[in-house]
């Protein structure tokens, strides 16, 4: 019997190596999707993600001719013991000008809790044009038992906001953070 080709064992080992490489690479790719997704959302404003950083306060041309309605929504995550609502539910704003409004939150539990508000802007394409220079969502908010307070948010709509957007909704969900220590 003449061996026609090199033993398949060599080929099998090579196949095994490259297949295992694909498996490991794809496992890594699954995790690489996480930062990839964040970047994509930041760039496109997908899912209403406003940019996490404080917006620049440089002056912008104010577009007096245009009025945009900004709606405020406050919701509380399932197990969080908050009372949470906006002071006004609607503002008429001119793009380019700064506005400040307040949200009210009160800790209804008998213990001190730490909360974090997560913003979301709808519709998605408006998210990149919604700039906040001050927001209670930038930091964690600590509340003593029963404490309630007003929390400010200062924002401005970019005049670049697409012309077909007439209403922008800013929604906050207030999450309870795990107890420290």
């Amino acid at each position: 019997m003449n061996p026609p080709a090199p033993s398949p064992a060599v080929g099998i080992r090579r196949t095994l190596r490259s297949a295992l490489f694909i498996v490991v690479a794809m496992f890594g790719f699954g995790f690489a999707l996480v930062p990839l997704y964040d970047v994509l959302c930041q760039v496109t404003g997908l899912n209403g993600k406003t940019s996490g950083v404080v917006a620049q306060a440089e002056p912008m041309r104010v577009d007096e001719a245009r009025t945009v309605t900004v709606e405020f929504v406050a919701s509380v995550n399932l197990d969080a013991p908050w009372e949470f609502h906006p002071d006004v539910t609607k503002l008429q704003v001119h793009p380019g000008r700064f506005y400040t409004t307040h949200f009210y939150a009160r800790n209804r539990s008998a213990r001190a809790v730490l909360g974090q508000a997560i913003p979301s802007v709808s519709p998605g394409p408006a998210a990149t044009h919604f700039h906040k220079i001050e927001c209670f969502c930038f930091t964690q908010q600590g509340f003593a038992a029963g404490e309630g307070r007003e929390m400010p948010v200062t924002f401005r709509i970019d005049p670049q906001l697409p012309a077909d957007v007439h209403t922008v909704t800013l929604s906050y969900t207030f999450f309870r953070l795990p107890e420290q220590g």
Binding site: A19, V23, M26, F27, F29, G30, F31, L33
Partner: peptide
């Protein structure tokens, strides 16, 4: 088989997360 080795690890990653 190629589909399997390409996507089963992604599921593994997702459930690990």
């Amino acid at each position: 088989a190629y589909l399997l080795i390409a996507v089963m690890p992604v599921l593994a990653g997702a459930v690990t997360m």
